[in-house]
Design a protein around this nucleic acid. Structure first.
Lengths: 248, 248
DNA sequence: TGTTTTCCTTGACCCAGATCAAACCGCCAA
DNA sequence: TTGGCGGTTTGATCTGGGTCAAGGAAAACA
């Protein structure tokens, strides 16, 4: 099930689930039309590599559904995740020919791809795409910088708490629920992927997750289903300000 | 010497040292004219804080000369540098009112500032500024991601070697010299700032610098003047591919 | 239905880098 | 000329998280 299937290929931008968040968010009807003509869908299975670092990249695109990772690898095999790609996130860089990172599908994913050249042409003469891409890139830069604080200065326990907080918050906003009361969600990452994300070993991840469980901060159902009982307490453990700006 | 001085205030964009690298790099004569009208220069002394995280920010701007840092701080005082601002680098984010990070002048610096509102207006109706800013932001994102690998996976010695390599490379490109043969430059950062950059303590930084010296990779003149004898050997120590693409 | 495989947990031990402490080295000011 | 001070070095010790090793659990396969 790797190729375009008729169902997804026939999808119209109008009812696209990421219509309001992706690079195309600002586009007018006529611009969408134009994007429609250069777009195509691709599916990848969980575990599949979308692009290898250094490979020639003739497309850019958005994650429509599923989760992927951006990873850097050193010659000796050490790896560090440098990006977590969620639905609506953009892959690839206009003006660059080779991929700078490995992109790997964590779950099954659907991508909305644009051939690179036409997309770049479009960026040059319709400002809405470029504007939105700038906005998204600035957001990613902020996220990368927050992540640098996590990697550089937080303890293993704080790192795990930070990751759980990020995932929980994202999940809450996706499902349009608040962060009061218990929050339950599925961990999209294996222990190893979490370790890659946080600059830890998988053993340390496992130990710290167990510790948070023992301390009553979280409950596990199986290995992946997590319940957070008190989000603000979790933020404390993450070393973050828990002044998340609630009600009065 | 904090305020605009007549000399710098009268500077024309035409002979600006960062003309070809900053946000204004792509601007036509008429666009420069317009920027000229909303720009003003500010000087800061070494050690001075340009903006505090959380402060209202009514301007954006470029570093014209000198070096500044972008830093994040946790409540308990742990800090992590998340950006190193060199001449032509951009400060501030269009569309955001509050500063997200502390910006501190490391050396005396000159900044070319634009009032935020007029700058945003200009971004909206002349594409050249926005295009260049997108390009610069994508570059910064790449730099941030490389840094994440350094923070997450490299040893203390590799971190120091990586930092020296970055500074040496930047210095070489600034002075238009190659990376063959010995390279000598002034370290712009204190040991503590280096530690903040690399997620280490200043003691570890000091020890690893001494170790690199003892191993003959670098020579020190005083505490700040560094000579690298073999750049590729340094890259090896940094754990980077030293396939820097030289001649045949 | 048993067997492999993948993912996860837990224990024992070790080491790189943190922490704590002391002293050094210009440099400027009194 | 002395003393304070910011930046730096170096030593001694401690510890968080890495490494190595041995199972467990549940899904995938045969």
């Amino acid at each position: 099930m790797l190729m375009n299937d008729p169902q997804s290929a026939s999808r119209q931008c109008g009812d696209c689930p990421i219509r309001h968040r992706a690079v195309c968010a600002r586009c007018e009807a006529d611009e969408l039309e134009r994007l429609d003509q250069i777009k195509y869908y691709r599916n990848f299975e969980a575990g599949q590599t979308v692009i290898w670092s250094g490979d020639k990249m003739d497309f850019v695109g958005s994650v429509v559904s599923g989760i992927a990772t951006l990873t850097q690898t050193m010659e000796d095999g050490r790896t560090q995740m440098v990006g977590l790609l969620l639905p609506s996130d953009f892959v690839g860089r206009p003006g660059r020919n080779d991929a700078a990172y490995d992109v790997v599908a964590v779950t099954d994913i659907v991508m909305c791809c644009f051939r690179k050249k036409p997309f770049e042409d479009m960026m040059a003469d319709t400002p809405h795409v470029a504007q939105r891409l700038l906005e998204m890139t600035l957001d990613e830069l902020d996220a990368a910088r927050e992540w640098m604080l996590v990697l550089g200065r937080k303890t293993a326990r704080e790192k795990i708490a930070s990751l759980l907080a990020i995932i929980a918050r994202r999940d809450a906003s996706l499902n349009m629920v608040g962060i009061a009361g218990p929050m339950t969600f599925e961990l999209p990452l294996t222990r190893e992927a979490m370790a890659d994300y946080l600059g830890l070993t998988l053993e340390t991840v496992s130990r710290q997750v167990s510790a948070l469980k023992k301390d009553g901060l979280i409950t596990l159902e199986g290995k992946r289903r997590v319940t957070i009982h008190d989000f603000n307490r979790l933020l404390d453990e993450a070393g973050d300000d828990s002044d998340g700006g609630m009600l009065a």
